[in-house]
């Protein structure tokens, strides 16, 4: 990110110098920084509200219900794993869009998988499958995206949700399939 950001600045300075609008470019940078606060405030309320609702969903037993609902799928995805609790927790937190809860559970699950793999330098099939599951975004309710759309004046910010579900499902399937194919080919690294 360091390289990217500095790169962006250097590129804009070069182009500004070439186009002779260095002054305007600097002003634009400042107004961009100023607008970041406005943008953030405009979707902060929506994000906070949904985090509150999701917390209630989590505490009211909806999470346990999800756990029951998910356990057959998790069993099928990770048949050789002994302790699937952290994995299930991680998937639920991801589904509910609670990134703060998903990462600790995910790291714990990965450490467990690492132990079951005998701490080898090459990851087991389960480990890479679990990582791929986390790099593909599974989220039932994309709070941030809805917040951004709503704050920028979308007429119907919720209408995008089904499209997001379809797209997420397809990309997740593709990633899992790719992992499976690479594993089948004997590519363990």
């Amino acid at each position: 990110m360091n390289y990217i950001w500095s790169g962006l600045l250097i590129i804009s300075f070069v182009f500004a110098a070439l186009g002779g609008n260095l002054q305007e470019t600097l002003t634009a940078g400042l107004s961009g920084a100023a607008s970041s606060i406005e943008v953030l405030l405009s979707f902060a309320g929506i994000m906070c509200f949904w985090s509150g609702i999701l917390k209630i969903a989590h505490k009211s037993g909806a999470a346990q219900f999800c756990e029951k609902l998910l356990s057959p799928a998790v069993r099928r995805l990770f048949p050789r794993v002994k302790n699937r609790k952290s994995i299930t927790m991680n998937i639920i937190a991801n589904l509910l869009g609670m990134g703060n809860a998903a990462t600790p559970a995910g790291v714990a699950a990965m450490c467990e998988l690492d132990r079951e793999n005998g701490q080898k330098p090459t990851p087991s099939h389960e480990m890479s499958r679990f990582a791929v599951l986390n790099t593909a975004s599974l989220q039932l309710f994309p709070t941030t995206i809805i917040g951004i759309l709503a704050s920028c004046g979308s007429k119907d910010p919720f209408s995008i949700i089904p499209l997001i579900w379809i797209s997420s499902a397809i990309s997740l399937t593709a990633a899992l399939l790719a992992e499976w194919l690479l594993w089948k080919r004997g590519d363990s690294k």
Partner: peptide
């Protein structure tokens, strides 16, 4: 995710994950 494990090689994971992103 791999920071706390002893895993060194993540090529397969990265390939599969990037493929998933491209499909996305």
């Amino acid at each position: 995710y791999f920071r706390k494990t002893k895993v060194k090689y993540t090529k397969r994971v990265i390939l599969a994950a990037v493929f998933g992103d491209l499909v996305g």
